[in-house]
């Protein structure tokens, strides 16, 4: 399931809903992304006031659905969930939740990691970091691309 929303989410409620009624599920792996309080360190050491996430709504929905189906095709998942927030967030706020449920842990761990790597490099979101003095658009990280590319090479 895909949810793209402005509102915060309750991890415990979301995970319970995801697994309820399916006793084939043996484990759930989840990842929660938070707004980190540090602007790109090489630029300055100021405190982050806000991070604003802009996105391309129609494309975000389409791309997230595509990648969720890819994960479902690649791992034996019983349930999956991606929640991605947009709008103005503060340091410490939750941005993203990815949760994958499967009979066994390996599929859950791997697919969760795959979805996060993919979100970093392919989901049409842009982050604006705002401090007291400046506004900076977050740039892509080559590490993220490296992490995402390993899923292409891996034969499953």
């Amino acid at each position: 399931m895909i949810k793209i929303q402005k509102e915060d989410f309750n991890v415990s409620t979301e995970l319970k809903t995801l697994t309820s009624g399916n006793v084939k599920i043996g484990g759930v792996a989840s990842f929660i992304g938070l707004v980190r309080d540090l602007v790109s360190p090489e630029k300055n050491e100021q405190t982050l006031k806000h991070m604003t996430l802009e996105h391309y709504p129609k494309m975000t929905e389409r791309k997230l659905k595509q990648i969720e189906s890819q994960a479902i095709g690649r791992w034996p998942l019983e349930a999956s969930l991606i929640i991605h927030r947009y709008g103005k967030l503060k340091p410490g706020d939750q941005i993203v939740l990815v949760a994958c449920a499967s009979m066994h842990r390996q599929a859950a761990f791997e697919s969760c990691s795959f979805l996060m790597d993919w979100l970093k490099t392919n989901a049409p979101f842009w982050k604006l970091e705002e401090t007291a003095k400046s506004k900076i658009w977050v740039e892509e990280r080559s590490d993220d691309y490296l992490a995402a590319s390993k899923w292409n090479k891996k034969s499953k």
């Binding site: 992304g33 996105h55 391309y56 494309m59 991605h84 941005i95 993203v96 996060m116 979100l119 970093k120 490099t121 392919n122 989901a123 049409p124 979101f125 842009w126 982050k127 658009w137 977050v138 740039e139 892509e140 990280r141 993220d144």
Partner: peptide
């Protein structure tokens, strides 16, 4: 058509 900088999701 949409134009944008490299995406930074997640």
């Amino acid at each position: 058509i949409a134009f944008f900088p490299p995406v930074t999701g997640g």
